[in-house]
Write a protein that binds this DNA or RNA. Structure first.
Lengths: 164, 164
DNA sequence: ATACACCTGTTATTGTATAACATCCAGCTT
DNA sequence: AAGCTGGATGTTATACAATAACAGGTGTAT
């Protein structure tokens, strides 16, 4: 994976197709059920390089007759997150497809507050100051939340453009 | 500041007294008003090395007749956070007193999921992998969220105790 | 006296999340 | 075949988090 997939130009159709394919393979391997609701929610997430709120997802499910009540969306999201197909972005109380599905890893996110794009990067938890502090105080880390809010390259360029 | 204040044994009374004193001095210097509500909320936060939710704070304010409605608590918290006397812990949707009041810094938190204690450490945003990824992709960071969930030294000891 | 900035009070609403219980179905057991 | 079981889904109700919008109050400066 590149440093922070999401900002570069890319053929977006492959994001969805490949992501779905990988998820199907992994579910088959592990005996997990990628049911219609779960599959559809994963497609929503793969379709955007931004985080979707649970209620935005619920609205889409409603539109397709796949569910009406909040627990439907939250259950699908729980499944996707707990099996490594999606992440929760704490800063946004929202969810995004994982860029490294099925592999246990600590994600880091770069969140553009201008256009809403969220890019996933890999955190190197062991070398970071957080891990240093934990080690120094005898704290055993289970999970890390590493997120940055700021401005992505495109929006920076747009701001700096001489004529607007 | 130590690596992660909050886990060690300490005379807790001084946390509150010193924190309040520093806040008063800073407010005086900067012409900020540490009103009764704001002061009291800061005392609540200083009184615990864990994060308090806005509604838990509101309940306490209600108990003292200092406010009845959510905006009262949120305004006080906004004041404390925006002037560097408290932080928001994104993972918990809750608030904690700042360990380095009045100084602009990027906090990092170690959250014990067993006892709820939250320790503040300093993140070294520049050297961390997040900053590396941002630099590599041309992303300009405005604010970072660095939090770890895990088990604090005391709870680790308790789990490992041979007789329970 | 009045204008302004700032703090507080209140109503109403929106957004996020989960507890608890009912139902359904596929696959296995007896 | 009947029954059990685990996992998935359906539904109601509620709790927790946050803010918009407007009203009122208090101090200071001009």
């Amino acid at each position: 994976m590149t440093a922070a997939h999401g900002f570069e130009q890319h053929n977006h159709a492959t994001c969805i197709r490949d992501g779905l394919q990988v998820a199907e393979r992994i579910c088959a391997e592990r005996g997990l059920q990628l049911t219609p609701v779960r599959r559809r929610v994963l497609e929503y997430l793969l379709g955007e390089h931004r985080a979707l709120g649970a209620y935005e997802i619920l609205d889409r499910l409603r539109g397709e007759g796949l569910g009406k009540q909040p627990p439907v969306a939250y259950r699908a999201l729980d499944f996707l997150v707990s099996h490594g197909f999606a992440h929760r972005v704490e800063k946004l109380n929202a969810f995004i497809a994982c860029g490294l599905p099925g592999q246990r890893h600590d994600p880091a996110f770069l969140i553009c507050s201008s256009c809403g794009t969220v890019a996933e990067a890999l955190s190197n938890s062991q070398s970071d100051s957080l891990a240093q502090a934990a080690k120094a105080s005898g704290f055993a880390i289970k999970r890390t939340v590493i997120e940055a809010e700021g401005t992505c390259p495109s929006c920076t360029d747009a701001e700096e453009a001489p004529c607007d």
